[in-house]
């Protein structure tokens, strides 16, 4: 199999799977903002998210884009099978100081496309393209779900954000607390026809998240992979992540450490710590510190101060300023603003 054809796959599983008969006393309409559109009792649900952003770097031209338009297609009819796909149109509309408004940068990609099979309550088998389970941010990176327009460098720079292959995931109870796990093997080179930016050549890895309490989770990541920047290089990556919340305050942090035996590439640390505090019912202030080792330059550091307005849970407006050192390439100083909606 060289490529994944979601429509054919979906038609096949709908044809093969039993359909549960559901009563009609439910009061939800077919559409709910932040919940998508349910196509009757078929188990199909359509939805997605959109975001638009403007970046005004301190020493580079400004740039505006309709940065993401993602469409979700979910199928879950109550059987053991569950299909999910996300088709993304990136930079659908863009403009800038040196560029007129247009669609010249548009690109399409299946961000995710997988079939889950529930084996039992503790184990689900996933086949297809999915987000690499490295840290927490990468798994929930959609603009309406995160507090800042810019993404921490540590959540995408040292690894591929996607993998294509097989994943075993689920949760078990350990010492009276929930432990979520995912173990995966990637063969993007073989299975992904329309390849993402800088994909894994091949990879395997695992992530666990332990719920110490309802509001405190600790995670750990390991991955072994080949990336092909200028030449194929095999890396080991280890990481830790933390998420804590109290009422509407949040604290999160991720660190990753990547090593390789290759003599020309240095071992690299990256990480961030971010705090969010409510200043009213709908306004939040965000502070973040980032540290990122770089292969071609001195280690960079960034401080970010942001403001977010969330009038409804699926809608968010963000404004932030970023300032740092040795950050010109990966995350330059400047102002960013964005609007995002989950629909």
């Amino acid at each position: 199999m060289r490529a994944i054809f979601p429509a054919y796959l979906l038609a096949l599983i709908i044809a093969l799977a039993p359909t549960s008969v559901l009563a009609t006393d439910d009061v939800e309409g077919a559409y709910r903002l932040g919940g998508g559109y349910a196509l009757g009792d078929t188990g199909l649900r359509l939805g997605g998210y959109a975001s638009t952003e403007i970046d005004v770097p301190r020493t580079a031209p400004w740039h505006f884009s309709l940065s993401d338009l993602s469409l979700f297609l979910t199928w879950d009819n109550g059987s053991r099978l569950h299909f999910f796909s996300e088709l993304e149109a990136g930079d659908l509309l863009s403009a800038g100081e040196d560029e007129s408004l247009g669609v010249q940068n548009v690109h399409f990609e299946f961000e995710r496309c997988y079939l889950d099979t529930l084996v039992n309550n503790n184990l689900t088998v996933r086949v297809g393209k999915f987000l690499s389970p490295i840290g927490q941010w990468n798994i929930i990176h959609a603009a309406p779900l995160v507090w800042t327009t810019s993404r921490p460098v540590a959540t995408e720079n040292l690894f591929s954000t996607h993998a294509t292959g097989l994943m075993l995931h689920g949760s078990v109870n350990v010492a009276q607390h929930l432990l979520e796990y995912s173990v995966y093997g990637d063969a993007s080179e073989t299975f992904e026809a329309h390849r993402s930016n800088n994909p894994f050549e091949n990879a395997f890895g695992a992530h666990v998240r332990y719920y110490l309490t309802d509001s405190l989770q600790l995670g750990a990541t390991y991955a072994n992979f080949v990336l092909n920047d200028l030449q194929p290089i095999r890396y080991n990556l280890a990481g830790l992540d933390l998420a804590w919340s109290y009422q509407r305050y949040e604290l999160s942090s991720e660190i990753v450490y990547r090593t390789t035996h290759h003599t020309t590439v240095e071992n690299t640390w990256q990480g961030f710590i971010q705090g969010v505090a409510p200043i009213s019912q709908q306004w939040f202030v965000i502070g973040r510190y980032e540290y990122f080792g770089q292969t071609q330059a001195d280690a960079g550091q960034i401080g970010l101060l942001g403001l977010a307005y969330r009038p409804l849970p699926p809608v968010i407006l963000k404004l932030e300023y970023r300032l740092g050192e040795h950050n010109e390439v990966l995350a330059p100083d400047g102002l960013s603003a964005s609007f995002a909606i989950l629909f």
């Binding site: 009061v27 919940g35 569950h82 929930i140």
Partner: peptide, 17 residues
């Protein structure tokens, strides 16, 4: 539930009474 929706999981069904 917004995060779960991003991962293709819907909240419990809501009934009228």
């Amino acid at each position: 539930w917004n995060i779960q929706y991003f991962n293709g999981i819907s909240p419990p069904k809501v009934m009228a009474s």
